[in-house]
Design a protein around this nucleic acid. Structure first.
Lengths: 327, 327
DNA sequence: CTGAAAGCGCTTACAG
DNA sequence: CTGAAAGCGCTTACAG
């Protein structure tokens, strides 16, 4: 079954290819009669005409797809929510958003260009600077390091750590610990949150928070609870890197008969579905990922359409504490 | 900065464009001297030549990207794992795998073709039959309904339900219930698992399992525990749709002083990280999503490269019970 | 063993 | 208000 081209439509409608192109792209519509326009549209639909992406991209040098590089981090519901919101927002602006998981040994910049020729690329964590440079040299806007501090940070990671501390302090806690993830892939985010927690304690006149590292194993959670509650100056509250780890701590605390929140208050981050389903339900920090995604979509369309003018300020997604029963 | 084209490389190397194309694509290499080949490769690298996807796609009518439509289901770690594995396997075969989240109101078939011109598309759940037909008419292989029963089912959902029942029965349970999700987006999978659970009970000579529906709320979990444990014939064990719900049930059971597994054994599905971290740790079913992804990648390359010959049998990912302490 | 040339489907100045 | 024509970068028969 041969492909239907704009030439076919033009012939069938008895107009030129240029006219078909104008109608399909809504360009120079003032120069085209409504009758011609209707005719072209009808004919295109009848023949089942679908414009060719490669034809258009080849000619115009720019596609309609923005490529988003998914970092090689622990899968989380949070980033899934963000991806969906970004897809939706970009779709409304007329762009397709595709996500790629860089496979080991894939040369991101070259292969991306080779396979996709995106009109913009967004990297959640830091793309290689070499990659980013090549893409930018080729004229492709790159929004990079959404998880890193800076003008385009999607969520204020520093503030997350600080918010947890302020919440715990407002509850009267003074010996507050921070439970960080020990996974290297999460260091980027962890470091910022720890810094935020430290800064907040300092501002609040609290002792510097003790940092305990834990991994995604039962032993690790148990050890962390021991560290937190034993010794000379036990913590009365702990801010945890994420809800999964917070829930692990909650379970480990119960196993050791440490009452939550009486003996140890716990607050997580992410507001995963299980946070509301645990007993007691987990207090946590929620992020407005959907808002952040919309802001990013706006930012991207600006970058794509008017790269010469400086983009307006970028708004990171809002944070809120979900006040349940563990803190 | 003007783009470097194959013509530039040809001129700089003093050969023809055809020779450059042959060298870059590894075609007709026997017809090209090693010297010429080395020269072209070196020149290409020096100039920073990257082939244009749209040029190639336009000419050959086929790109190197396979598009995977992510279903609009509750985000889960399981599908993330699958996506990464599929990306890796496809990258090894020379294809880029991109994921798209269909936004509301997006015409999948037309827009996909328009933006991406994929060489194959895979749909986790059922693409609209109209969409699939149009794609196939255009000569694009479509692998669809990976979650549905059939030759290309990635994971045997029916067997998951059955496996849970067999495990519980082997432990001596006879009054076994099935706790299903009440979310419409999960019905596709839920229905198959319930059927599998029923069939297994029949084969084992057990009474038909009672089905309880529950949602992702604490009240729902509490009600489910009450239903399960009260009444004339309380269940001594329950197979749950997924680990999130199973963990919710576990928490609700504890809140009502129902001992697990003594009073109520629980087995989930998915083996999410928290399954190992709960107290007691959750027994569950793990799926070999990585194996399934590799099988799918093989299947796809076959379909793309030799669409005329029938593909070999497709192997669904293996299932295994993770025997922890709740069942 | 290599090159000249056509053409994939589109858009866009330009001419009328 | 509309059309003819060039050309984006590539691949591939074909000729030498």
């Amino acid at each position: 079954m041969a492909r239907v081209t704009s030439r076919d439509v033009a012939e069938a409608a008895g107009v030129s290819q240029a006219t078909v192109s104008f109608v399909m792209n809504g360009r120079h519509l003032n120069r085209i009669t409504d009758h011609t326009r209707g005719l072209v549209l009808r004919t295109a639909k009848e023949l089942g005409y679908v414009p060719s992406a490669s034809g258009r991209t080849l000619k115009s040098g720019r596609s309609n797809v923005v490529t988003c590089i998914v970092p090689d981090m622990r899968p989380s519901e949070a980033v899934e929510v963000f991806k969906r919101a970004l897809s939706g927002a970009l779709a409304n602006a007329g762009y397709a958003c595709v996500f790629v998981h860089p496979a080991a040994g894939l040369d991101v910049a070259a292969d991306l260009w080779k396979y996709l020729e995106p009109c913009a690329v967004v990297g959640l964590d830091k793309l290689g600077t070499e990659d980013a440079r090549r893409l930018r040299d080729a004229g492709t806007p790159v929004v990079d390091g959404l998880l890193l501090p800076g003008d385009e940070q999607i969520i204020d990671q520093h503030e997350i750590g600080a918010l947890q501390m302020r919440h715990l302090a407002a509850l009267g806690h003074r010996q507050i610990a921070y439970a960080a993830s020990d996974e290297a892939s999460e260091d980027l985010v962890t470091d910022q949150r720890i810094a935020g927690a430290r800064d907040a304690c300092e501002k609040l006149g609290l002792p510097e928070p003790r940092i305990v590292r834990l991994g995604y194993t039962p032993e690790s959670a148990r050890d962390a609870v021991i560290q937190l509650t034993d010794g000379a100056a036990p913590a009365s509250a702990v801010a945890v890197f994420g809800d999964v780890l917070a829930l692990a701590l909650l379970a480990a605390a119960r196993a050791r008969s440490v009452a939550v929140p009486a003996d140890l208050a716990i607050i997580g981050v992410d507001d995963i579905p299980l946070a509301a389903l645990s007993v007691p339900p987990l207090s946590t920090i929620a992020m407005d990922l959907s808002g952040a995604a919309h802001a990013l979509a706006h930012h991207l369309t600006h970058l794509i359409q008017t790269p010469e003018v400086a983009p307006p300020a970028f708004h990171a997604g809002a944070l809120s504490v979900i006040d349940r029963q563990t803190a």
